[in-house]
Design a protein around this nucleic acid. Structure first.
Length: 734
DNA sequence: GTTAAGGCATTTTTT
DNA sequence: ATGCCTTAAC
């Protein structure tokens, strides 16, 4: 193999990373610096130059989509089938391990993955069964508590809250939840990771097997790993497997979900002597856009330090539009899109993205696009397998697969209504709890010993027969026929037909779509993905139904229609990570919305919002249009917002204000900006300060210039206040 | 047991 | 404005 072919077209740091010896590596890769390229070339290098077999390489990605893309690009580059590479998300890799080693992981062979919705329902049931006050100890909070503990690697038995009644109750719920899951053979997302970690710790021979097998580990989006994910990697790598971590601290936007930027620093400590490479040359954006992004992110005090540069052209200034309200904003965007299309008639709509902070913003945009007859596609929102009707159908399938799946049983025992009410179900729950059995077992027992009213008994036997009937009919027929049969015989069609409005129609179409999804579900591919080399085969043969259920839980199922139609892409800033577009609109860049008011008073969360802004700006390749509305209707309420502080953080020289129809060539006045205020006060955002009356605090924002400079300070005890710098007499600390 | 009317909260999201 | 969930009436 010709070495140069793999290094051609790479810049020096990229080459350093790709052609490095087999040691630990930490690659800090800025936005648009060719990160994926380096990963793909590195894997190709390992296979072709270092002669590692595909089966000895493990690559972890953030999403299934990213995994798929990486496979494709490796195949395109090398011509080698990436089939034997272990590429996947932490969750899918953990899932694969647990399917293979279910016994060592102390799981039933047919364990099932439950999603967060099922998890919440289960927790709700537990909280109620324990007679815990739902107001004080909300199931949602309990869910969050449980997941965060699991993300930290802690089980209920590991936690000892002392005099904290709230935490004590949470731990109690956690423990009961663990038991319920174990009994029903249910595994939630966090549990996949936790079990996989425990598998390493408790089963040294399993760990040894994989330490023998893997010769190199690569981790993408390392800044978004949480504690348990990193722990899993660290144990696996041990002292024997070299690992390459690729990430960007400036693009860490999932802290609210347990992601730890600190893992980057920790990596350098844990794997001392790791080669560090910084990829700082940006190949994506014009220098105006890049400079603006740099200026914004520069306001974050806690950064590892990295400065993106480009030798590209300055390009157009960033356009800034002040709208009257959200309607006007949407109209303006439509007009800009039309204009762009006229000027670039050969280019496609899919080169355009509209990014916003929260999903609620998409509606107005959608309406405007419909009115303007412009093609669009909204990403995110509810996913296919999260839809009510789909979840119901899947619950029947799950119940067929595993009678002890309490979550599934609860979901459909009375959907469609078959006269099994809350009272009857509660009776079953009590019975199940006393016996330590599943709801299904309780149901059978109830029927057998006639423990219920005759009326309830009839309904219950009807339900039990229905499920048994389904299974009989479904044995031996194709997967999509099974799905079709279940949808029809369950009565779900009639049930949803009864709903009024257009919803009924959509729901039925979705159910149809589920049959289609089952038909196109490629069984061979699913098995192939699992049959990896020297793994005992019998551990991996799943029924088509079981494989389908697993996939539906783990894969977001981007089964949206017209995926390939040329359309403007609308999505949240979060889902835009990793993507790039020639033309990007950042909509709703207002205080309260972006940064979101929920994050505005906490310096750390504010930093994350700013990183989100950085991610948004750096998505743009050629043109960036930022808009904000003076007034915006949200939740049925009219709100007046000021432009986001992030706009003020972009130096005016890179911006130009835009009016509808005509462009006014007037630079933006920077009176609300931070740049001038920084000069005048000598302070910076994030600086800790002391005030004679309010005590200690942190600077969140600043505006104005000279003597008018004002500072927003979050005081440790007195909340957040705007102070005029000239009078406040703040003392810088630290 | 089923259905209809009021109360309440409402970031970001993959797995 | 909307959807979800609890509560009250059939």
């Amino acid at each position: 193999m010709d070495v140069t072919a793999l290094l051609d077209g790479l810049n020096p740091p990229q080459r350093d990373a790709v052609a490095a010896p087999l040691n630990h590596q930490l690659v800090l890769a800025g936005a648009g610096s060719g990160k994926t390229r380096v990963l793909v070339h590195r894997i190709a290098w390992l296979m072709q130059i270092e002669h590692l077999s595909p089966g000895s390489i493990l690559a972890v990605t953030f999403t299934n989509k990213a995994a798929k893309e990486m496979r494709q690009r490796i195949e395109d580059l090398t011509g080698i089938s990436p089939r034997h590479l272990w590429i996947g998300t932490f969750h899918s890799l953990a899932h694969r391990l647990l399917r293979i080693h279910w016994q060592q992981a102390n799981l039933p062979e047919n364990f099932q993955i439950i999603d967060s919705d099922d998890q919440l329902r289960l927790i709700k049931r537990i909280v109620r069964a324990m007679n815990i006050d739902e107001k004080e100890f909300q199931p949602k909070q309990a869910q969050h508590y449980i997941n965060s503990q699991k993300d930290e690697g802690l089980r209920a038995k590991h936690i000892q809250p002392f005099n904290d009644r709230w935490a004590q109750t949470m731990v109690t719920i956690y423990g009961a939840y663990e038991e319920a899951c174990q009994r029903g053979g249910m595994v939630d997302f966090a549990e996949l990771l936790l079990r996989a970690h425990e598998l390493w710790l408790n089963q040294p021979e399993v760990l040894a097997q994989y330490q023998n097998r893997f010769r190199f580990i690569l981790v993408d989006e390392f800044q978004d790993t949480n504690s348990i994910q990193y722990a899993w990697l660290r144990v696996l790598a041990g002292k024997v497997i070299p690992m390459m971590a690729v990430g960007d601290d400036d693009q860490s936007i999932y802290g609210w979900r347990g992601a730890k930027i600190e893992n980057i620093l920790q990596f350098s400590k844990d794997f001392a002597g790791a080669q560090e490479v910084k990829l700082e040359q940006n190949y994506r954006s014009t220098s105006n856009i890049l400079n603006a992004a740099n200026a914004v992110i520069d306001n974050n005090p806690s950064r590892l330090g990295k400065k993106l540069w480009t030798d590209g052209e300055a390009g157009e200034p960033i356009h800034l539009y002040q709208a009257f309200n959200e309607q006007d904003e949407a109209r303006f965007i439509c007009e800009q899109v039309e204009q762009w299309k006229i000027n670039n008639s050969t280019k496609r709509y899919e080169n355009i993205a509209i990014l916003y902070r929260s999903n609620a913003q998409s509606r107005v945009l959608e309406e405007a696009f419909i009115r303007a007859a412009l093609p669009y596609r909204i990403y995110g929102g509810q996913r296919f397998f999260d839809r009510l009707e789909i979840k119901n159908a899947m619950a029947y399938l799950r119940l067929m697969q595993n009678r002890h799946d309490d979550a599934a049983l609860e979901r459909v025992i009375n959907v469609p209504a078959r006269a099994i009410g809350e009272k009857t179900v509660q009776l079953l729950r009590d019975l199940a709890r006393d016996e330590g059995s599943s709801l299904w077992q309780a149901l059978m027992q109830g029927i057998e010993h006639k423990l219920l009213t005759p009326r309830a008994l009839t309904s219950l036997s009807g339900f039990a027969n229905l499920i048994a009937q389904m299974e009989t009919t479904c044995s031996g027929i194709a997967l999509h026929e099974q799905v079709d049969h279940v949808i029809k015989s369950s009565g779900l069609i009639e049930h949803h037909l009864k709903e009024k409005g257009e919803k009924a129609q959509t729901r039925l179409e979705n159910l149809d779509e589920l049959v289609t999804a089952a038909r196109s579900f490629n069984m061979d591919e699913a098995i192939e993905k699992q049959l990896q080399n020297d793994v005992p085969d019998d551990a991996l043969i799943q029924s088509p139904l079981a494989a389908f259920l697993d996939q539906s839980a783990l894969d977001s199922g981007d089964t949206q229609a017209d995926e390939f139609a040329d359309s403007v892409q609308m999505m949240t800033l979060h889902s835009a990570k990793g993507l790039e577009f020639p033309l990007v609109f950042l909509a709703g860049v207002e205080e309260g919305l972006f940064p979101h008011k929920m994050s505005a008073n906490d310096p750390e969360r504010l930093e994350e919002e700013r990183r989100l802004c950085y991610v948004g700006i750096t998505r743009a390749m050629e043109r960036l249009v930022i808009s904000y509305a003076e007034s915006r209707r949200l939740h049925g309420q009219e709100n007046v917002n000021s432009p986001s502080r992030f706009i003020g953080e972009i130096p005016a020289e890179y911006m130009q204000e835009v009016r509808l129809k005509a462009t006014i060539k007037k630079p933006v006045s920077n009176f609300f900006g931070t740049s001038a205020a920084k000069e005048a006060t000598g302070m910076n955002i994030g600086q800790r300060v002391w005030h004679a009356k309010f005590g200690e605090g942190v600077i969140l924002d600043m505006e104005g210039q000279g003597a008018q400079s004002r500072l927003q300070v979050s005081f440790d005890f007195d909340g957040t206040k705007w102070l005029v710098a000239a009078y406040a007499k703040l003392t810088a600390m630290e």
